[in-house]
Amino acid sequence: MNAVEIEEAVSELAAAPFDGGEFPFAFLAAFGNRPVTIQRLRAGSGNASDVEGGVLQRNNIHMSVCAPGAVSQTLSALRASPKTAANKVKFVLATDGVTLEAEELGSGEVLACGYPEFADHFGFFLPLAGISTVKQIKDNPVDIKATGRLNKLYVELLRDNPDWAAPERRHDLNHFMARLIFCLFAEDTGIFLGTRLFSATVEQMSDRQSGNTHEVIAELFRAMNTKIKDREASNFRPWADALPYVNGGLFSGDTDVPRFSRIARNYLLHIGSLDWTKIN
């Protein structure tokens, strides 16, 4: 698994209802462990833990799901366990489903966060998948999230609009994606006035089944290509008129927009929920 795939798997795990019995195995699966490896740990033959409720994977991680409020105490027990040192563990992790604490033993770096937020720190654990972490990923995991979600949106749009996959139209799709990225960045950095002006308008004005998402986006693009003094004669929908004119030519020319399936619309809204001020 690559970093994008791991981020997606960890995000799904963090968003799902917490299951203490399954968490250690789901966590390992999210970092690319094979089913046969996880099955051995479940059966106990590959689990060398000496901590109650613990799961230890040699050369990787020693973790435990603990009673409510006992996270710090359990992390200390994992760190002090003779099995942790004997099995050359890189990480210890404890969670009660409310908070999560972990430590990279080699560096002494510690992670402490609410359980639902641990997906935002997936870069901390990438060595578990054999991926050497770099400071940029640890400090800016939202870059990986954005990359993964934009890629999924791109693939879904091609699936729904096969004509856009033709060589003569691929530039159009790339141009469309550039316009989207600008809008998402602009609404989070103050270029657009208002909170999530672009993505919130798409969410509010498009059908949940996505029958008209392309029409809503096209109208927003048309507004951004029209100077304020020319708006009155252009018969804009009121919700589109709130968007500013964007000079520089990004929105000039054809405002054709690919059709969005319900899945593609959801990808776009998820992308819009990211904090684009943190994306490089």
Rank of each mutant, 00 (worst) to 15 (best):
M177Y: 07
A200S: 14
R159P: 09
D163V: 10
Q204R: 14
V216A: 02
R179I: 12
E219P: 00
G190I: 01
D207F: 02
L220C: 02
E219G: 00
G211H: 12
L180V: 10
E187F: 13
N174M: 14
L220K: 01
W164G: 01
L184D: 10
D188F: 05
A165G: 12
R159Q: 13
R196T: 05
I217H: 03
G190K: 01
L197G: 12
P162H: 02
V216Q: 03
G190Y: 05
E215S: 03
N161Y: 09
R196V: 02
F185R: 08
M177P: 08
L180T: 06
A218H: 06
F176R: 03
A200W: 05
T201N: 04
N174D: 15
A166W: 03
L197I: 14
L180A: 07
H175D: 12
F185Q: 04
A200T: 10
A166I: 01
L184T: 08
L184H: 11
S206I: 11
D172M: 11
G211R: 12
D207K: 11
E187R: 08
S210F: 05
D188Q: 01
A218L: 04
T213F: 00
R169S: 13
G211V: 14
I181T: 09
L197Y: 12
S199H: 08
L184K: 10
E219C: 00
D207N: 15
R159H: 05
I217W: 02
R170L: 14
P167S: 14
Q204F: 11
L180I: 13
N174L: 15
Q209D: 15
P162V: 03
I191Y: 13
E215H: 01
W164Q: 12
T189F: 08
M205P: 04
S199Y: 03
D188N: 04
I181C: 04
I217G: 08
G194C: 00
T189A: 02
F182I: 03
G194I: 00
F198W: 11
L220S: 02
L220F: 02
E203A: 13
L220D: 02
T201Q: 07
A178G: 10
W164V: 07
I191D: 11
D172F: 06
V202K: 10
V216G: 04
C183W: 00
L184F: 10
E219D: 06
S206K: 05
L220I: 11
I191A: 14
A186M: 07
L173K: 12
G194R: 00
A166S: 09
N161A: 02
L220V: 08
V202D: 08
I181S: 06
Q204C: 13
D207A: 15
T189Q: 04
D188V: 00
